[in-house]
Simulated scan of single mutants.
Amino acid sequence: MSSPRGIQRIARSEGVEKFIEALEMDGGVIITDFTDPATVAQANAEVKPWIEQQKNSQGAKVGALSGNTRTVTRLIMRSPTVRESFYADPLYQSLCSHFLSLTTTTWYGSAPQTSTSPPLLSIAIAFDIPPGTPAQGLHRDDKNHHARHAPATAYAPHRDVLLGLFVPGCATARANGATRVVPGSHLWGDGRPDFGLGAEVVDAEMEVGEAFVMLGSLYHGGGAYEEGGGSGESRTVYAMFSCTGVHRQEEVSFLSYPVEEVRTYSGVVRERLGWRQSEPNLGWVDLKSPEFLLQA
């Protein structure tokens, strides 16, 4: 199992096709001009009070999280900047549509019926990772969907059910536990992975304003943030994943969002939360697409 290359770093001006090619080849790509430091600072200011509420907690002990990592869930509601500037970003949403939208033609009697199911937001969460946090085991995030993968030499449409977006709240490097990824591992099968001698595992190091997009089938994991490494400050990252519209979302936070709040969200966010049915007949209320419930 050899990785074809490291993580490509691409600017928006190179066009969406370049990002698609990089994701199909490597499983992940860094957007070098995703946002700007001022916007990241605004997101940090919105999220910090929620992080501070957990100051005296014992840290996360769920799944792959460990140590004293603090989390902020329901992030779409708690940070307008994360919601509208990061998650709703047109480039990220274009990539979600490309990799996750499903269009099929079925038959109703003798008449063909073509339907498209748009992606859904699966989870939006902030991680605040302090010094002393051990590395995560390398894993695939689509495990929650029981996804299965046949070994492949080239990418095929509809191979993935998840597409993730990671926006760092500070500069990330190996010293403060930057996410480790295995480029090319999205084409591996489901057998026990062989990560070689470590040369295939690379660090997704980023400056403030950059972002990392990855397929759910890519092996990755948070790096070790050893005591004395980095600046000594915690490392904050905003993680968002979208899933296909026919899979269950990981975080069902939308159940707790008041309708009055959802009405203020942009159209693409409302749709991705599930306030539009997946055609032809998934996610309706009273036999209608649920956006009618948002009418004042």
Rank of each mutant, 00 (worst) to 15 (best):
A204S: 13
F99H: 04
D141C: 01
V47I: 15
A296Y: 05
S2G: 14
F99S: 01
T236N: 01
V201H: 08
D203I: 01
D203F: 11
V285I: 14
R159N: 12
V47F: 04
G27S: 11
N44D: 14
W107E: 14
S117R: 07
V16L: 13
A111S: 12
V208Y: 05
L165F: 11
T104P: 00
F86I: 04
D190K: 05
A199T: 12
W284V: 12
P130W: 07
T106Q: 09
S57E: 14
S122A: 08
T32V: 13
E24M: 07
G232H: 09
Y238R: 01
Y238G: 00
G283W: 06
N68T: 09
S289L: 02
Q277H: 15
N44K: 06
S66M: 11
V262Y: 08
H145A: 13
H149Y: 11
V72T: 14
P280M: 05
H145W: 12
V285M: 03
G232E: 10
P151N: 09
F212K: 00
S13F: 04
T73F: 08
P4Q: 09
E210P: 01
S185I: 04
M214C: 14
W50H: 15
Q136N: 06
G196K: 06
A152R: 15
P112D: 07
D33R: 10
V72S: 03
A22Y: 10
G223D: 13
G229V: 07
G132F: 12
I129N: 03
P4I: 14
E14F: 03
G216D: 11
E84Q: 14
W188T: 04
T236Q: 06
Q277G: 11
A150N: 10
N176I: 14
E14C: 02
G191L: 10
L23W: 08
A38H: 09
S110Q: 10
T236Y: 00
S253P: 00
K55Q: 13
E233G: 02
H139N: 05
T116V: 05
W275G: 01
T105V: 13
V259R: 07
P280I: 10
R263W: 08
T236P: 00
K143F: 14
G274L: 01
V269L: 15
G222H: 06
M214E: 13
G267I: 02
P119G: 04
T32C: 01
S2V: 08
H145S: 09
P37W: 08
F86D: 01
Y265N: 01
G209L: 01
